[in-house]
């Protein structure tokens, strides 16, 4: 973490509102892009990004610097996403997923870019597997770190990643 960010964190923890706003703004795009990939739903990603900002504002005093500030935000956002998902009913969950993937597909197509089979298959993975695959193979976290983000043992993360990749492989073979 650079000195500027550390200074902003120190000021934010002492109750400096503009410093907190600056700090969160600095990380907004990173967080939003993580949430796009985790949820595959731009409007949900935006809602969760705002909720994460609010939760970070409430908990900034608890941030102890043992992980990067961006990892701390990813942890908050992932837990909020998991909590929210638990509250949804199965039917509306399917509809939401379809709508989310359609919004991303539209963004690709509106720029004359080809939509991807891999992303389509990724959007159909169950949340725990999708987030585990994403954090492991795109963000490069260890199984232990992902376990602490998702509040599950590292063995569970390992099996989710492996099942997720297996499912992706299977879907891509079916599409071929």
């Amino acid at each position: 973490m650079d000195e500027g960010t550390l200074e902003l964190i120190r000021q934010a923890q002492q109750g400096d509102a503009p410093a907190l706003a600056g700090l969160l703004r600095e990380h907004y795009n990173f967080l939003f892009k993580y949430l796009i990939k985790a949820t595959m739903d731009p409007s949900l990603a935006e809602e969760l990004a705002q909720d994460t900002m609010v939760r970070a504002m409430e908990k900034i005093g608890n941030y102890n610097g043992t992980s990067a500030f961006s990892s701390w935000l990813i942890t908050i956002a992932t837990r909020l996403y998991i909590d929210r998902k638990r509250r949804w009913k199965r039917e509306s969950e399917w509809l939401r997923r379809e709508r989310g993937a359609a919004a991303i597909r539209w963004r690709f197509e509106s720029r004359n870019m080809e939509w991807s089979d891999v992303l389509d298959a990724l959007s159909r993975l169950p949340l725990p597997q999708r987030v585990a695959v994403l954090l492991k193979h795109y963000y490069g976290y260890s199984y232990e770190e992902i376990g602490s983000i998702m509040e599950v043992p590292s063995g569970t993360v390992k099996s989710r990643v492996s099942k997720g990749l297996q499912q992706l492989r299977k879907e891509l073979k079916e599409d071929e």
Binding site: N29, F108, M113, Y138
Partner: peptide
């Protein structure tokens, strides 16, 4: 995923 990131 990088291509998806680039969209945003």
């Amino acid at each position: 995923l990088e291509r998806l990131d680039a969209q945003y």
